[in-house]
Simulated assay, not measured.
Amino acid sequence: MTATANTTRATTSTVGALIRAGAVATVAASAATMAVAAVGQLAGVSLDVGGAPIPVLGFGVLTAAFSLIGLIIAALLARFARRPRRAFVRTTVVLTVLSLVPDLIADASTATKALLMLTHLVAAAIVIPAVARRLAA
C-alpha cells in the first residue's frame, strides 16, 4: 500500500511539473510569436491572409490554444506511452510540419507565408523542448 501511495505522489508531482513547464512555455511562445508578427509587420510584411488582416494578438491566442492542445497530448502520452518523451517529440514534430501546410497554400504573399511559418517554428522551438524535458525518457 505504501508503494502505491508513493507512485501516486510521484505521478502527481510529475504531472504538476509538466503542467507548470507547459504553462510557462505557452506564455513564452505566445509572447514570442506576437513579437515575431509585430516585427514582421513593422518590417513591411503584410499580415493579410485572404484579404483579411490577422491581428498581432491573434498570433498569441492561437499559439496558446495549440500549445495547450500539445500539453494535453503530453499528459496523455505521459500516462499511456511506453516512452513518453520520444512519442511526444515525434508527434509534435510531425504536427509542426503539418501546421506549415495551410501557410503554404494560404491566399497570401510569399513574405506573409514565410512569416506565418516562422511563427509556427518559433512556437515549436519553445514549447516542444520545455515540455519534452518533463516527460520520462
Rank of each mutant, 00 (worst) to 15 (best):
M1P: 14
T2F: 07
A3M: 11
T7H: 13
T7I: 01
T8H: 03
R9E: 12
S13W: 04
T14A: 15
I19N: 02
R20M: 06
A23L: 14
A25Y: 07
T26P: 09
V27W: 07
S30A: 15
A31K: 01
A32H: 03
T33S: 01
T33W: 05
T33H: 04
A35Q: 01
A35P: 06
V36T: 14
A37Q: 07
V39D: 08
V39M: 11
G40M: 03
Q41H: 15
L42D: 15
L42M: 13
L42W: 12
A43V: 08
A43M: 10
G44I: 02
G44F: 01
G44W: 02
D48I: 01
D48K: 14
G51E: 01
P53V: 09
P53L: 00
I54P: 07
I54G: 10
P55I: 04
V56I: 15
G58L: 04
G60K: 08
V61Y: 06
L62W: 11
L62T: 15
A65C: 07
F66T: 13
S67C: 09
L71Q: 07
I72R: 10
I73N: 09
A74P: 11
A75N: 01
A75R: 08
L76R: 11
L76W: 09
L77G: 06
R79W: 09
A81K: 11
P84T: 05
P84L: 01
R85C: 08
R85Y: 03
R85T: 03
A87H: 08
F88C: 01
F88Y: 15
R90P: 00
T91S: 14
T92N: 14
V93H: 04
V94D: 02
S99C: 00
V101D: 05
V101M: 09
P102K: 04
A106G: 00
A108K: 02
A108D: 05
A108P: 10
K113N: 05
L115W: 02
M117V: 03
H120T: 05
H120S: 09
L121C: 09
V122E: 05
A124V: 04
A125H: 01
I126D: 08
V127N: 08
R133F: 05
R133P: 07
R134N: 13
A137H: 11
